[in-house]
């Protein structure tokens, strides 16, 4: 365990909590993709299947349970909460899950560390996490709506991915047998997609700055 890894996990948790608390406080989920949230829950569930038999540390187990619980709560708010679900932008959030799930499943069957059910589901979750933000990016591009909620959420998610890369570099330098190509390549793809989001975020920020200038 190193400082980059701990920072990354805390940032990841913060990103989810920021989203959850803002939905709770404002009773609105405008601009948030339910598809992305459901894909993240699928990522957590398929990756943390080992929760019941593979005890690594209390730290890991607590984070796994908290990630699953908090992302379930976000989905509950968006689908079931009477006020919040009315603010969900259903008409623009039309990305098809299967376009992501099928390629990730096929890739996990072909490129994996070991051909076993648990290993393939774990690998699937790594691939799926890399692309799960795509429905959110598509929704953003369609609505051109980058408000504080989506901005802060994706900013924290991007920081979380950046700290995981630092963690891998640190571990590669300090642990003799540390190597994880599947995770590294997927992580790089994922971080690249967040950079795309940052680009739109900065553009929207610049435009709103320009609009405030006196003409």
């Amino acid at each position: 365990m190193n400082i980059f890894r701990v920072s990354a996990d805390i940032l990841h948790l913060l990103s989810i909590l920021v989203l959850l608390l803002k939905i709770h406080a404002t009773k609105s989920c405008a601009g948030i993709s339910l598809k992305t949230q459901e894909l993240y829950l699928a990522v957590f569930v398929t990756r943390y299947l080992d929760l019941f038999w593979n005890f690594h540390s209390l730290y890991n187990s607590v984070f796994k349970v908290v990630y699953i619980a908090t992302s379930s709560m976000i989905i509950w708010y968006m689908k079931r909460h009477r006020g919040v679900k009315q603010t969900y932008d259903k008409d623009h959030d039309t990305f098809r899950y299967l376009f992501l799930i099928v390629p990730c499943a096929v890739l996990a069957l072909i490129v994996n560390g070991r051909f076993s059910l648990f290993e393939i589901l774990w690998t699937f979750s790594i691939y799926l996490e890399a692309v799960a933000i795509l429905p959110q990016l598509v929704l953003l591009q369609r609505t051109k709506n980058v408000d504080n909620l989506t901005g802060n959420y994706v900013f924290l998610l991007g920081l979380y991915r950046a700290f995981y890369i630092l963690n891998w570099i640190y571990r590669y330098a300090t642990e003799p047998h540390y190597s994880a190509w599947i995770v590294w390549l997927s992580g790089l793809v994922q971080t690249g997609l967040y950079l795309d989001f940052f680009y739109y975020y900065l553009q929207a920020w610049k435009q709103s700055k320009k609009l405030q200038l006196p003409s």
Binding site: D9, H12, H56, N60, Y67, A180
Partner: peptide, 10 residues
């Protein structure tokens, strides 16, 4: 304990 290193990450 024979799990690969990347499995101890979240």
């Amino acid at each position: 304990a024979a799990e690969p290193a990347e499995k101890d990450e979240l």
